[in-house]
Amino acid sequence: MGAVIPLQRQIIDYTTSLYNEAILDGQFTQLQQLQDESNPDFVVEVVSLFFQDSQRLLNDLTATLNQKIVDFKRVDAHVHQLKGSSSSIGAQRVQRACIIFRNYCDQQNTEGCLKCLQQVKNEYFLVKNKLETLFKLEQQLVAAGGSIHVQ
C-alpha cells in the first residue's frame, strides 16, 4: 500500500501537465466521469478505439496524398473523421491540426496537405504516447491496491 499515495500524486501531476500543454481538454475529463464500477475500463476502451481508427485514417491519408492525382474529397472526408474522433476523446492538439489540414484541402494544396499530415501525425503520436504512459501509471496504481478516480 506504500506505493499508492506517491502513484496517485504522480498521476495527478501527469494528467495536469497534459491539460496544461493543451494535449487534452475537458472532453477527456468527461470520458473519465463516464467511467464507473460497472464500466471500469471505459476510458481505455474508447481511447483504444481512437488509436485503431486514427492509425487506419492516417495510413489511408498517407497513401491518398502520395497518389499522382490526389482525391481531395477522400482526404477531406478522412480528416473530418479524425477531427471528430479526436474531439470526442479530448485530443485537442490533433483536432486543431485537423482544422488547419482541412483548409489546405479546400484549396487543393497538396504540399500544404502533406505538411499538415505530418503535423497531425506528430500530434497523434504525442497524445498516444502520453495516454499510454497515463494508463500504465493507472495500472500500477490498481496493482498497488489503489483505485482510479477523477479528482
Partner: peptide, 15 residues
Amino acid sequence: DSIIDRKLIERLLKT
C-alpha cells in the same frame, strides 16, 4: 457511423 462516437453516446445514454 463512428465507432468511437457510438461508444460514447451509448455510455452517455446509459448513464
